[in-house]
Design a protein around this nucleic acid. Structure first.
Length: 962
DNA sequence: GAGCACTGC
């Protein structure tokens, strides 16, 4: 019987001969010239060479040196045999499964033909419906289906009677409700709603719109015996607010959650009764409901709250609701926003009516930088970079004014404002301002963590803030708040509370007793730079809306004071609102949503949102989705895209968990996917940064991987949780208990999804059959790399200032100091894969895993083999090249083809892997391959070609020092 | 030597 890959033998001979040739010539080179150094003084080239020959001699010698330092990929005999065996068995395997229907029919146009090779199954039916449907047909179809909101007169009567027999508790709560400003608008709102399908309600925090408006509607419906056809949904941008608002409303109705009021957020819900009820949920949750209920037949009223925040989710739903209401004339929509520009929402909804609820807050006195400078007599450091004539001008100006003593202070202030430093954040100015305030809690807004750390340090070290008189709380999403409850309480007599916060204190965290707000006027914005094609995070001036929100934080319990640390003139340059999120972020997930809701072409739909994103941004995201094989050339969802669109994950991490299910290693990969998508649980504890870093290094277990550290943290947390010492574990390792708890619950959610998709046999993420390879760290890294591919960088230089790597798109990048791979003495491999790359003070890779060449070859979707001057190279789409042994390269490529076949089959025929058959053997061979300890170096490209010269690294370092 | 803030059947 002839070997199916018999041709390999001949080629092997061929390749050996080629290598032999070079071997001989290099040997002869050595023997001729010995160990001569390069310099002429040491002998240099042989004396008999002349002119051009000398040049050629050095060229060849350089090549020779390069060749010697380049190690070549060559599979060990053992691995070769395994791969060859699998390849032998692969012959005809998928053709048989596909019934030969596959090759010819993929060429023809219609979708039915295109996916003919997929066997009839539940998956195929669902998938075909999805790819061939459109929203209008779906809405028409959905409207024919009977809704739960059918009139039921008995129920109407029952709800009415229940409502009329209000308890004492209800009545006492009602007294408080009647005092809210919203109450005075109750009649107007209900009247407006009767004659209009859509209305806009504006009002500041404290006016009671969020808690009262849904109740106005519900109570009115019940009183008019419409309870059985009323179900109100009210969306909130944050999980916490969905819960707390629901709790508040239930309390006002003297009920427990779950009767007429409930909430639903990811991983947690208390649902109210089906009818005659209000459901508070996160905006993302409504988006999920839309997948199963495109006409929103389950609801009579949709209330979108806080739409002025312009999140991607609320902007998306605003556009989608416009389509839905045209087919559902009985659906009422209420858009609720702060008083910033409610007109824009009205205009977007065909000039629908607006109603304003005045808010109630105590007056807040505002001061600007000029006032603050006057007050503190603060001086900025001298401006050194001022143009000469400018300085002369000031001098002259000052001389003229010198005599007018009464204005001297004012003039000095103006002089200070001319100093360019007045535009920069001055922590010293803030500290002096804090020191001179009268009693009352102070809230300071700063742009980022470094500023919080520095200000905290200044205050602790300058001796003006003794612990018995001051208590300082740094507030940042990545910092543990030492005593979470104390921060909300009034401190004891004679003690001053100072909170140093980021924009987290603008909306997410409310501290009631704040009297003074110090607003530095800057915040960090995450954006997407289309020109440079990179995510950025840089401090910028806040918008007027943010500034107003910050000011409002001072007047919650009594009149307050707000100090803006920018001039009145600077304020004139501020934008009215922050840029809508949809214009700042990548659009892959939005596009997948458009596809799963069957809204047609991404560009067409996105043109209909309030602030349509740039076409280039859409193209970039479409390109990535095609690279990931989630969309095809006609922008249709592929079978993989269909799965990915249903997962509550970004598509790259979604791909990761599907692969993990196939390779039976779900626990660690779920942990990593959850951490990358949600947030990692590592805290940055003030003053204990080094200790925390050591703990993270310990969890990395010498694997050179932040991702492994994330996984290990969750594994140990879960073990600790079972034995009830999770809290102390979190304390010891500087981890967030709440984050880890949520991450752990997300793992279960992923398992449920993959179970429904049939990639797992159990809804339990710890199921043994789904975790056969969970201890295989190299495989975990390989799957992480496959999900993150082509995010690969090559480490080039470790300096005192940091670790620098190279990526094809950006050239020089730096590894973020929080990564376990920052400034490692010796890396196991120069390649690192990463999830987040962000431009701040430098281009940083935030989370990294060191990966070997075999892992990269495994992660890449394809590779090419080329021959150059007698040597063979494997080239990857992510720009790495490896010198290789010809036969090994062939085997690796064939193995990859077989793996791609397996993936395509599995994705179109969801199921778990049978480990005792061909599939199992193939995956085992791949696992063996990624574990191959091939000692392989990067084929040395010239530094200049990589854009990686010494001067470039220097530039990178200089930027960082700024 | 450093990551604004959110969110998902």
């Amino acid at each position: 019987m002839s070997h199916p890959y018999g041709s390999f033998s001949a080629q092997r001979m061929h390749s050996r001969r080629r290598h032999g040739d070079r071997g001989e010539s290099s040997q002869s080179g050595e023997s001729h010239f010995g160990n001569h150094g390069r310099g002429r003084g040491q002998g240099g080239h042989p004396p008999w060479l002349k002119g051009k020959q000398i040049g050629l001699y050095y060229r060849d010698k350089a090549r020779e040196m390069k060749q010697k330092s380049t190690k070549v990929i060559k599979l060990s005999e053992h691995v070769q045999v395994q791969i060859e065996r699998v390849l032998y068995n692969s012959k005809g395997y998928y053709e048989k499964l596909y019934n030969n229907a596959y090759a010819e029919d993929t060429l023809h146009g219609t979708l039915e033909n295109k996916y003919m090779h997929i066997h009839d199954s539940q998956f195929k039916r669902k998938f075909m419906n999805m790819v061939s449907g459109n929203l209008h047909e779906n809405l028409d179809r959905a409207l024919l289906v009977k809704s739960r909101l059918e009139r039921d007169s008995d129920l109407d009567k029952m709800l009415f009677n229940e409502f009329k027999t209000a308890t004492q508790e209800y009545q006492s709560m009602e007294k408080i409700r009647l005092k809210l400003p919203a109450h005075h608008k109750k009649v107007d709102i209900l009247r407006l709603l009767k004659t209009n399908q859509v209305i806009v309600i504006s009002g500041e925090t404290g006016c009671g719109k969020t808690t009262q408006v849904p109740q106005f509607i519900l109570d009115d419906a019940i009183e008019h015996r419409d309870g059985s056809v009323t179900r109100i949904i009210c969306t909130q941008p944050r999980r916490i607010s969905a819960i707390s608002v629901a709790e508040r409303v239930a309390a006002e109705r003297a009920e427990r959650l779950g009767k007429s009021v409930g909430f639903h957020i990811r991983l947690e819900k208390v649902l109210p009764r089906d009818r005659g009820s209000i459901l508070f949920c996160t905006t993302g949750m409504l988006l999920q409901f839309l997948q199963g209920d495109p006409a929103l037949k389950e609801f009579s009223h949709i209330i979108l709250d806080e739409i002025h925040e312009r999140t991607t989710e609320s902007d998306f739903i605003l556009a989608l609701l416009k389509l839905i209401i045209s087919k559902r004339s009985d659906l009422k929509v209420l858009l609720m926003s702060a008083t910033v520009n409610p007109e824009s929402f009205s205009e977007y909804y065909n000039n629908c009516p607006m109603i304003h609820i005045p808010g109630f807050t105590y007056p807040v006195t505002e001061y600007y930088l000029e006032d603050v400078l006057f007050l503190t007599e603060f001086k900025f450091p001298p401006a050194t970079a001022l143009p000469q004539d400018h300085r002369k001008h000031i001098k002259k100006y000052k001389q003229e004014q010198q005599k007018r003593d009464e204005f001297q202070d004012m003039i000095e202030v103006i002089d200070q404002l001319r100093n360019p430093h007045s535009e920069k954040l001055s922590l010293d100015l803030i500290e002096q301002l804090i020191r001179k305030r009268d009693p009352g809690a102070i809230l300071v807004f700063l742009p980022g963590m470094m500023d919080i750390i520095k200000l905290n340090k200044i205050m602790l070290e300058n001796g003006h803030y003794p612990q018995n008189q001051y208590v300082i709380y740094p507030l940042h999403s990545r910092m543990p708040t030492i005593d979470q409850k104390l921060i909300f309480k009034e401190p004891s007599e004679g003690v001053r509370k100072i909170i140093i916060a980021t924009s987290i204190a603008e909306t997410s965290i409310t501290i009631e007793d704040v009297v003074y707000v110090i607003d530095c006027g800057k915040t960090k914005y995450g954006k997407f730079d289309l020109q440079k094609n990179i995510q950025t995070l840089e401090p910028e001036w806040v918008s007027l809306a943010n500034a107003r929100q910050r000011k409002g934080r001072a007047g919650r319990v009594k009149p307050g004071v707000c100090y803006h640390l920018y001039s009145k003139a600077r304020e004139k340059t501020f934008e009215c609102f922050p840029l809508p999120e949809m214009l700042r972020t990548r659009l892959e997930e939005v596009i997948l949503q458009i596809k799963i809701l069957q809204l047609g072409k991404a560009k067409t739909f996105l043109e209909s949102v309030m602030s349509p994103p740039n076409m280039k941004a859409i193209d970039l995201s479409l390109d990535l989705l095609r690279t990931l094989n989630a969309l095809d050339d006609e922008e249709h969802l592929t079978p993989l895209g269909y799965h990915l669109a249903q997962l509550p994950l970004d598509p790259r991490t979604g791909k990761m968990i599907i692969w993990a299910a196939l390779f039976s290693c779900v626990e660690p990969v779920f942990a990593i996917a959850a951490s990358l998508n949600f947030k990692d649980a590592f805290y940055c504890p003030l003053g204990k940064e080094e200790e925390a870093r050591k703990k993270k290094l310990e969890l990395n277990m010498n694997q050179f991987s932040d991702h492994i550290a994330l996984s290990e943290a969750l594994t140990r947390f879960e073990a600790a949780y079972k034995r009830s010492y999770a809290s102390s574990f979190c304390r010891d390792y500087f981890l967030s208990f709440n984050t880890l708890k949520l991450l752990s619950e997300m793992k279960t959610q992923f398992a449920q999804h993959l179970y429904q998709m049939k990639f797992m046999n159990s809804e339990n993420p710890s199921d043994v059959n789904a975790n056969k390879n969970s201890k295989n760290t190299v495989l975990i890294k390989a799957i992480v790399c496959a999900g993150l591919y082509p995010n690969v960088a090559v480490i080039r230089k470790v300096t005192r200032n940091g670790t620098f790597a190279w990526t094809p798109e950006d050239g020089c990048v730096a590894i973020h100091p929080s990564s376990v791979n920052d400034r490692v003495k010796e890396y196991t491999s120069p390649y690192i894969t990463y999830f987040t790359k962000q431009l701040s003070t430098a281009i940083y890779l935030h989370d990294t895993t060191c990966v070997t060449a075999p892992i990269l070859l495994f992660a890449a979707p394809n590779m090419s083999i080329r021959k150059e001057k007698g040597n063979y190279f494997i080239s990857l789409p992510s720009s790495q090249n490896f010198a290789c042994d010809w036969q090994s390269a062939q085997l690796i490529q064939k193995l990859q083809e077989q793996f791609n076949n397996l993936l395509e089959y599995k994705i179109t025929h969801p199921g778990t892997v049978c480990w005792n058959g061909f599939e199992g053997d193939l995956l085992k061979a791949l696992t063996l391959f990624v574990n191959h300890s091939a000692i392989i170096n990067l084929v040395c490209q010239k530094d200049e070609e990589m854009g990686f010269s010494e001067s470039n690294i220097q530039k990178c370092e200089d930027n960082m020092c700024d």
